[in-house]
Every structure is written in structure tokens, then in C-alpha cells.
């Protein structure tokens, strides 16, 4: 039972990070292979504030998100502002992920280099994670339904037209990056306080691939799809050891296959009906809700309004 709980906790943490990345990659159409960097920033921020400064856990979690956002803006703004291609951004993010890992691995004071930091309690429980997943999903659904989220879609669909219709492209992209950085940062913090130990090696570059896999398989332009995929992909390696070894190979092959045959992913541009997600949240991992997926009802603007 305890094993089951721990698997679910990891799944929940992964869900939070994957829906964060989904806003950037799926909704806004920007590519990132560097989000492990935000996970690292989140993890170390929370641990350092908790361990060295005695800040309460809940505040640490929040701070980890905020710090990720700040650093995300430092790296993201110049690439967005230049208004050139998504390629520059993708390359900058690759560099960013590497740079963060390098800085953390080689800084002895505070970060303790490659050895990492330990000696803090396990504060991430299944309940904390469940609560944050629920909160994270609700807030994210609100965001994508808002004008800000719609601007993201416009940028993804047709950047030039969006801009000529008056959408502020730079601001939209920066917001998308900030939101994704926040979620992934919080995920990193939860991860650290689940493991009770954090080192650069625990957040390898392959973590970025894992997160991306959640978005690609769950569906570009969906939040619920990536949430489910993110949970499932965290559980699979736990129950199938062989899968754990070969998962990146399988993801890689599936990336190509999905892009060739069903680029919109599992759910495509749809969302699972919102209410069952909350109501049956505990059963979400069972994926049964996927069958109930409904088309977004444009006329009513979704059902969270009531």
C-alpha cells in the first residue's frame, strides 16, 4: 500500500510538471528541451530556503515557483524579444538546461556540488501532492480558458496573423514560459522533499525528455491529456523495470511515430470534461475518464462557468 502511495506521489509530481510544459509546448507551440533546468532551480530553491533559512515548507514551494519564473524571464525574454524563430528559443533552452546543471554541479558552497544536499525531512506526502495537482489543474484550466490562454493558442496557430490582429506575441510567449517555469519549479521542489535528498544527477537532462513525452503523448493543445500521460508515464517505469531502461528509446521512436501519424497526440485539441476530472480525481489515474471526453463546448465556453 505504501508502495502504491509512493508511486502515486511521483505520478502527481510529474503531472504538475507536465501540465506546466504543456502550456509552453502544446498551447503556445514553443519547443523546450531544457525544462529539467527549472526542476533543478525549484528543487534547490525550496531545499535551500528550508534548510538554511528555516522558511516554512509551504512558502518554500511557492518560492521555488517564483524563482523559476524569475530565471525563466532572464533566459526567455531576450529570445522572445528578438522575435525570430522558435529555433533560437529551443537552442537557448537547451543551453539553459545544461548551464543550470553545470552551475549546480560545480558550486561547492551552498549547493554542495555534485554531492548534493541532504538532511531535510520528507514533507511531500501523497495528500500534499494530490491537493496541489487538483489546485494546479483548476488554475491551469482557468488560465487556458482566459484571454491569456487564448492568446497562446493564437500564437501557436498562426503567429503572423495573431500579431496583425493585435496579439502581443512577446508578452504571450513570456507569460507561457513563466507559467511553465512556475509549474515545473514547484514540481522540482515537491520532488526534492519527496526524496529527502537532492543532487544534480537526480535531475538528469533526460528529465526534460520525460516531461516532453508527457506533452507529446497527451496531446498538443490539451491540458488533461498531458496530465493523464504525465501520470501514466511516471507510473510505468515503476511497475516495469525493463521499461525504465528502454523508455527513452521507446519515447524517441514514439515521438517520430506520433508526429508522422497523429501529431495532435492522444487527445488532440480537446479537453476532458472538467467536472469529472475534479469529481473523480482520485480515479484519474485509472484513465477511465478519457472515454467521457467531450468536445469543448464553445457555445457555453465550457462548464466551469457555473
Amino acid at each position: 500500500m505504501q508502495y502504491f502511495g509512493s508511486v502515486l506521489t511521483l505520478a502527481g509530481i510529474n503531472m504538475i510538471m507536465v501540465i506546466g510544459l504543456a502550456v509552453l509546448v502544446g498551447y503556445t507551440g514553443l519547443f523546450s528541451m531544457g525544462h529539467a533546468g527549472f526542476m533543478m532551480i525549484g528543487a534547490y530553491t525550496a531545499v535551500i530556503f528550508y534548510k538554511y533559512l528555516g522558511v516554512p515548507f509551504a512558502v518554500c514551494i511557492l518560492l521555488s515557483g517564483v524563482f523559476s519564473v524569475i530565471i525563466g524571464l532572464v533566459i526567455g525574454y531576450p529570445t522572445m524579444r528578438s522575435r525570430l524563430t522558435g529555433d533560437q528559443f529551443a537552442i537557448a533552452m537547451m543551453g539553459f538546461g545544461e548551464a543550470i546543471r553545470m552551475i549546480v554541479s560545480n558550486t561547492e558552497p551552498v549547493f554542495n556540488g555534485a554531492l548534493g544536499i541532504s538532511g531535510f525531512p520528507k514533507l511531500t506526502s501523497l495528500w500534499v501532492v494530490t491537493l496541489l495537482v487538483a489546485l494546479g489543474l483548476i488554475l491551469m484550466f482557468n488560465f487556458i480558458k482566459s484571454a491569456y490562454g487564448k492568446n497562446c493558442i493564437a500564437v501557436r496557430e498562426q503567429e503572423i496573423a495573431a500579431e496583425i490582429m493585435g496579439v502581443d506575441i512577446v508578452k504571450t510567449k513570456v507569460i507561457a514560459l513563466a507559467v511553465s517555469a512556475f509549474y515545473v519549479g514547484v514540481g522540482g521542489a515537491l520532488f526534492a522533499f519527496y526524496m529527502t535528498f537532492i543532487s544534480p544527477a537526480m535531475i538528469a537532462a533526460s528529465k526534460s525528455s520525460d516531461l516532453l513525452a508527457g506533452v507529446v503523448f497527451g496531446g498538443m493543445g490539451s491540458i488533461s491529456g498531458p496530465a493523464i500521460a504525465g501520470g501514466a508515464l511516471a507510473i510505468l517505469p515503476e511497475i516495469l523495470r525493463a521499461f525504465s531502461t528502454w523508455r527513452l528509446v521507446i519515447y524517441g521512436v514514439l515521438f517520430v511515430v506520433v508526429m508522422l501519424f497523429k501529431p495532435e497526440g492522444l487527445l488532440g485539441y480537446r479537453e476532458i470534461s472538467f467536472k469529472p476530472v475534479i469529481r473523480f480525481f482520485g480515479r484519474l489515474f485509472g484513465k477511465k475518464t478519457a472515454a467521457e471526453s467531450v468536445k469543448t463546448d464553445n457555445r457555453n465556453g465550457g462548464d466551469a462557468d457555473e
Binding site: L30, M33, L248, G252, V256, L260
Partner: peptide, 19 residues
């Protein structure tokens, strides 16, 4: 397709082959 899909495809190939 969008260049995003091409980038994901490239990364997918790289992930599969490297790993």
C-alpha cells in the same frame, strides 16, 4: 507541419538512437 513537429521528430530520433 509546423517546425515544432519537426523539432520534436528530430529530438525523438536523437533520443531513440542515443539511448
Amino acid at each position: 507541419t509546423s517546425r515544432l513537429f519537426l523539432m520534436i521528430t528530430g529530438i525523438g530520433i536523437d533520443m531513440a538512437v542515443t539511448n
